[in-house]
Design a protein around this nucleic acid. Structure first.
Length: 604
RNA sequence: GCCGACGUAGCUCAAUGGCAGAGCAACCGCCUUGUAAGUGGUAGGUUACGGGUUCGACUCCCGUCGUCGGCUCCA
């Protein structure tokens, strides 16, 4: 929740915290808390219940787990309370008065202590300025709350409120504290807006990459193999291959060289690199090979460093840019795995840049621009940039050493005129970084590109170059991945295009649909002709009706459907239908080819 | 990892303690079709896995694995 402000971002939105919708949702949360209190008289312990994007939640400590039926009961009761037209009354108390009032509410007591002593808010974050302890009362329910609220429950539209689900949540977000039950709800001004929101949720599910991955036969995850380990099917494999081929070509143009490295390395390597000190919990258990311990690699950097160190490097060799589609394995706790977006084995489009200190700004700028260009080529426009700073509990080196590199990244962001936010304490152990994140269909943010400044590993692994002065110098190192991991990127790509990949990426670009068996031979010859021209086509020669074939191609989101019947056979043509439903009518094969090639060239 | 829900045919889902089923997909036919599902038949199951209760378990109980929604984490 607490994050640095957006830098250079346009101030286009009204501040949510000051909107009426915010107050409606906040007030709805209080109504919900009242309903839950009534359901468990004297037993319900209440925690906090803020508005969130699109809704609100409230956390409770209850004598038993809530069921979906409970939610219906609570929701019904909420409507009754809302219809009772109760006003929200604010009052200010002293800490002692508040303690007395909430004597049987331990979580509230803890909040009161925080307000009184430390000036910390409900998330445990420090508050600036003097703190007032305020309460809000509606009907029979009083909550410790800083507000604001609507004046009266009649400002809440009972037909625009809905409870969505129950989930566990730690008190104060701390996994050592009790697990509470969180009820999520949504509230709007108009019933229509609620409808639209629920429709949006359904729409999001329809473009969920896990669902599309199955429907479009792109990938699977097999219990027999293991959770978080992806099996790419031919169609998904084709999309991935095209994406990789494109990126490889771009890398060659961008002055990168390709290297390859193994999947495991000796324990000693990971000790020297610092991974076993800082990152062991993210690594799989070691393998014992002839008495030597080996680890599956969670990152590629130590290997690339070894390649660099395989001979003496001159200042004239720099910068060196080593790129590898490197498959890494990271232990992720079972509860966090999520389709393609959070996995245990993935392939990074990784690269390590070694440069002289004076080359650093240019290299960062280059990597940042490269990253933006590539993401745009795949159709992504709406991404968020973050600058992650030193994690005070997990960093190598000295705090002062982090200042200049962090500034270097910040300056590069400013030069790129890219709006960004500061992610305090989110850096990697070896240096600050710039991340580029995208939102998935369900509005969750995922990191794709990352550009990481590293001034630690070169030292730990004793990386040097010989300078003009004939002496050894320490190079700087940048770790960067543009798409991040191919798995996550593919997940994002699927959701971004809702499975309807641009023509250049579509695994099957055209399906030829012969109307009757007598058209199959011609369809095959047209198919061969298109394949020769470099298109990915299939001939649907099943004994189905044309309508069924169109429907299937449509559901597979194939860009072009080429219908072939007597007329086309006669004229040496194809009838082109687009997946938008548009019927372009019959055209000579060459005309279709030109159109398709244009679409591919334009990466449409 | 934690809290909760869930796990039945390739997929989507029925069967609330008494004979494991449907649609789609697959396979074999028939139909030869003009822009989103033609039609008949056949086959398909250790009900995730292991244990328990019961005359009898898909169904109830316990454990394991996995999935989903959150939380924590996310180099």
């Amino acid at each position: 929740m607490p994050q640095g402000g957006v830098h250079m971002a346009a101030e286009k939105r009204e501040r949510y915290e000051e909107s009426e919708l915010y107050r409606i949702r906040h007030s709805a949360a209080h109504v919900m808390a009242q309903a839950v209190m009534e359901m468990f008289p004297g037993q319900a312990k209440i925690a906090i219940g803020p508005p969130i994007e699109d809704g609100f939640y409230y956390d409770f400590d209850l004598p038993r787990p809530l069921t979906p039926e409970d939610l219906e009961v609570i929701e019904r009761r909420m409507r009754e309370i809302i219809s009772g037209h109760h006003s929200y009354e604010r009052a200010v108390l002293t800490a002692d008065e508040a303690r007395e009032m909430f004597a049987d509410q331990p979580y509230k007591i803890e909040l009161i202590e925080g307000l009184e002593e430390g000036g910390t808010d409900e998330y445990g974050e420090p508050i600036e300025g003097p703190v007032e302890i305020s309460i809000y009362t509606q009907d029979t329910f009083t909550d410790l709350c800083r507000g604001p609220h609507v004046e009266d429950t009649n400002k809440i539209n009972p037909d625009a409120v809905k409870l969505l689900n129950v989930a566990g949540a730690y008190w104060r977000g701390d996994e050592r504290r009790p697990m509470l039950q969180r009820i999520y709800g949504t509230a709007w001004k108009l019933a229509d807006e609620l409808e639209q929101y629920l429709w949006r949720l359904e729409e999001a599910q329809r473009r969920d990459h896990r669902r599309l991955g199955k429907e479009l036969d792109l990938y699977s995850i097999s219990d027999a193999v293991g959770p978080g380990l992806i099996l790419w099917h031919p169609k998904g494999g084709m999309v991935r291959k095209i994406a990789e081929d494109y990126c490889r070509a771009q890398h060659l143009e961008g002055g990168y060289e390709f290297v390859y490295s193994p999947h495991i390395g000796k324990a000693n390597l990971w000790e020297k690199s610092g991974h076993l000190d800082w990152y062991q919990e993210g690594m799989f258990a070691p393998l014992d090979i002839e008495g030597q311990q080996y680890y599956l690699k969670p990152m590629n950097c130590p290997f690339h460093v070894e390649i660099y160190k395989s001979r003496t490097r001159s200042y004239r060799d720099l910068p060196l840019r080593y790129a590898e589609w490197g498959t890494v394995y990271r232990y992720e706790r079972s509860g966090v795995l999520h389709g393609l977006l959070r996995v245990r084995g993935f392939t990074q489009d990784d690269a390590h840049l070694f440069c002289r200190p004076d080359q650093m700004p240019e290299e960062i700028d280059g990597a940042l621009q490269f990253s933006l260009n590539i993401l745009r080529a795949f159709g992504f426009e709406d991404f968020q940039a973050y600058l992650s700073t030193r994690n005070p509990e997990k960093f190598a080196g000295e705090p002062e050493e982090w200042e200049a590199p962090t500034e270097a990244l910040r300056e590069s962001l400013e030069r790129a005129k890219l709006p960004y936010q500061v992610d305090e304490g989110q850096a990697v152990f070896y240096g600050p970084k710039i991340d580029i994140k995208l939102k998935d269909a369900l509005n969750r943010e995922w990191q794709l590109a990352t550009i990481q400044f590293d001034f630690i590993l070169p030292e730990r692994l004793d990386v040097t170059y010989v300078g003009e002065d004939g002496k050894e110098h320490r190079p700087y190192m940048i770790h960067r991945a543009l798409l991040g991991s191919m798995e996550r990127f593919m997940g994002a790509l699927i959701e971004h295009h809702a499975g309807a990949f641009p023509v250049w990426l579509s695994p099957v670009q055209a399906v030829l649909i012969p109307i009757a068996d007598r058209h199959i031979e011609y369809a095959n010859s047209v198919g061969d002709q298109l394949k020769k021209a470099g298109l990915r086509v299939e001939v649907d020669a099943r004994g189905e009706r044309m309508n069924a074939k169109i429907r299937d191609a449509q559901l597979q989101k194939v860009p072009y459907m080429l219908v072939i019947g007597d007329r086309e056979l006669e004229d040496g043509a194809v009838s082109v239908r687009l997946r938008s439903g548009e019927d372009l009518g019959a055209m000579p094969i060459d005309d279709f080819l030109n159109r398709a090639e244009e679409d591919v060239q334009a990466r449409r």
